[in-house]
Nucleic acid binder design. Sequence first.
RNA 1: CGGAGUGUGGCUCAGUCUGGUAGAGCACCGCGUUCGGGACGCGGGGGUCGCAGGUUCAAAUCCUGCCACUCCGACCA
Length: 519
Amino acid sequence: MQRALSVSRMTGNTSTFPDWYQAIVREADLAEVSPTRGAMIIKPWGYGVWERIQQTLDRRIKETGHENCYFPLFIPLSFFAKEADHVEGFAKEMAVVTHHRLKSVDGKLGPDPDARLEEPLVVRPTSETIIGDAFSRWIKSHRDLPVLINQWANVVRWEMRTRLFLRTSEFLWQEGHTAHATAEEGREETLKMLEVYREFSETVLAMPVVAGEKPENERFPGADNTFSIEAMMQDGKALQAGTSHDLGTHFAEAQNIRFQNSAGELVHCHTTSWGVSTRLIGGVIMTHGDDDGLRLPPAIAPRQVVIVPMLRDKPEDAEVVAAGEALVKAMGQVITLGEPVRALLDTKAQKSAEKRWNWVRRGAPVIIELGPRDVAGGTISFMRRDRLRDGDKVASQSLSREDFLAGLPALLADIQQGLYDEAKARLGANIRTDIATFDDMAAYFGAEAGDDEEATAFRGWVRAPWARPTGEELEAIEQKLKALRLTLRNAPMDQPAAFGPCLFTGRPGVEEILIGRAY
RNA sequence: CGGAGUGUGGCUCAGUCUGGUAGAGCACCGCGUUCGGGACGCGGGGGUCGCAGGUUCAAAUCCUGCCACUCCGACCA
């Protein structure tokens, strides 16, 4: 891969991948750090992307039979005591509310000692416990099942180190929670939503992923099985972009979620949960961004086409603006990717060249430059953000207004597909399947002679057979991998018929697993 | 919380070693010339140099403590 991304065209400096990432977040006007530790301010353009994610994913969640609802931000502390693995998994990162009033003592404002809560409230890190509690009241009979709900919410996890979009102490997400009569139905639901995430990620975000099952040590606290979609970033690292958990009867047992089956027996439900978060935006940045800034897939671009009018403080300006407004209207009549085209005429009092580059940095898929000559000649001059440059020159093309409008759906679809294909090719080219032993893998990922720190980061993943060890044996493997900064990502859903020997133990393999560095 | 690094206008940084009136480029404001293109000239606004102490006639610069951020670990959607 060895792709040397730089921020040179954005800020005038070359630098490392993390610097590049931060530069894009800033230059594309997506978000900024807030005065609140670890939490981000999502700016309008960034939030617009999130709204597009919400709209397109929400439709899919509803099409698969789920309904939205809303549960409280605060969860009574005692709720977490019920499921041992769950509390252990989250205990170290919980924000806790202990008081309900402030008081000024010696001029210093602080919690009022007299206003201590009898039972502290936890700011939800996830909502299994409080939703499970509701399920236990909602579900009495097999006729009540399945219960299929989702909520769009914010959650808080007190992370040690934060990074905009990728890991923030507060983040936005959706969390689906379902209850079923049988283990088979629970498993089916878990896999169905994993597939929704895979399809969504690939067709809407244009971000290819590998869907698979997480190894035992990477499971969600309290889950029987965890599945994930893993995306490959341009530095070769894996990003866990979504998870779907088969919770079995763990939470049902802990929270008394039971129903009477048709035979009259009182039995526990099988529950699931699944979620994706604002982390997806970080994935989009690191999948599609380039040296000029962000490149947004048209399906999630808040504005798919931006018109920059060439205004010169002259009388003909009015004509250009009028033509621009008419063009926005005309594009609004065009249906592409199933929806009217989202277009904007940027009339901000700013130099045209500035506006153009701002939209390049923000990643608007198509940027039209509309000048008096275009208006007179009925032509549209535009550039595609996905193929911005021809050498060092900006690749601008010109079509008649009619042809442009007629070809717009195909153009946006082509950009969407092109971004996907580019990322898919990168993913495919950077999974090594020819590494057979742990030592070979260590040599591959480790710092070799002549490799600098930077180069070792661009390794991609290894896919290899393994014997699916468990318990202490798995723990030992995890520790060995940790020394190489590697983790087990997932065992992909599509598996071959036969397997070579296990990369770790040499025993016969039972499935293939992905190994890589991760965010 | 462990290791390393960095804190100087909105951004990127110089100045710190060797204490002596706070700088540059970009961004911003004004005027003008330009302008199918990240233009140029002139003028201008904006910084208690992360915070708090200390040393000194004098501190961005030296000393002590603290804080924040970045990277690498641990943790993690």
